[in-house]
Write a protein that binds this DNA or RNA. Sequence first.
DNA 1: CGTGAAATATGTATCGT
DNA 2: ACGATACATATTTCACG
Lengths: 152, 152
Amino acid sequence: MDKLDLRILDQLQRDTSLTNQALAEQVGLSPSACLKRVRRLRERGIVQREVAILAPDALGANLHMLVEVTMARDNKTLYGQFIKQVEAAPEVTQCYQVTGEVDFVLVVSVPNMESYDRFCDRVLDASDNVHKFRTLISRKRTKFETRLPLDI
Amino acid sequence: MDKLDLRILDQLQRDTSLTNQALAEQVGLSPSACLKRVRRLRERGIVQREVAILAPDALGANLHMLVEVTMARDNKTLYGQFIKQVEAAPEVTQCYQVTGEVDFVLVVSVPNMESYDRFCDRVLDASDNVHKFRTLISRKRTKFETRLPLDI
DNA sequence: CGTGAAATATGTATCGT
DNA sequence: ACGATACATATTTCACG
């Protein structure tokens, strides 16, 4: 992965709505050469997917919860089970497996409190593996950047 | 925003790499009608932006930190200052303003520990407003979904 | 909202470095 | 192995019904 690939990735992380022509011009390549690289980056899985980011409040109040989950036992199998449940739950938009007193941090995105309640009943309270969890209610998501730093 | 718009948004949240033609077919519209709606959704800001999601590990080890920040005083101006600093810091990929003992939760994405250290020095330790912070180190990001639930 | 034609962009083959 | 040019195919975009 050379400088040109990094330039392409940097641009695609910011905006994929440009045409291949415009992208090629930006990074200093011919359209065909640029397209070849973009396709290769997709094939290699470096570009995982291309998605639209929607305004959270345009879709009915959107509520974000940060949930710190502590498991009952440190057991790989139980961890795997929990991760599967989390992956299957559409309310969980992010899951981080962390070190320390807490085992997981979830970002849960729901339209309202009732939805969050139902999620807790269905996923967290229903699991024997979950020892306890603490919810931090987000009043506002002031930054949401999908871009990863390529250069820090 | 009717059913057709929601169907379009649902698809765009999953994948924007399809052509307008394919999208139109999916949602049951002619290409021109579909394009008009997509453009309107962009103009209204409901579609904020279109981006590529990159594989975090394809770009050198990517380390995610969850940082709980507690402010020294509950002061709107100081909060605003902190939010500005956070917005300016490329390491901070997400910021949630939360209620409870903690005031903010940040997601900080860096290539390694040294980068995180530098970030702490530059942003967190340098700010008088920050009373204390707790870092949860993520070993693994097991789920990362930008999609917001349109229907839960 | 759909149709069809003009304007643009994408994709491919080939050549040159 | 990679990029540029040119040509064929596909898509976007717009005027009109």
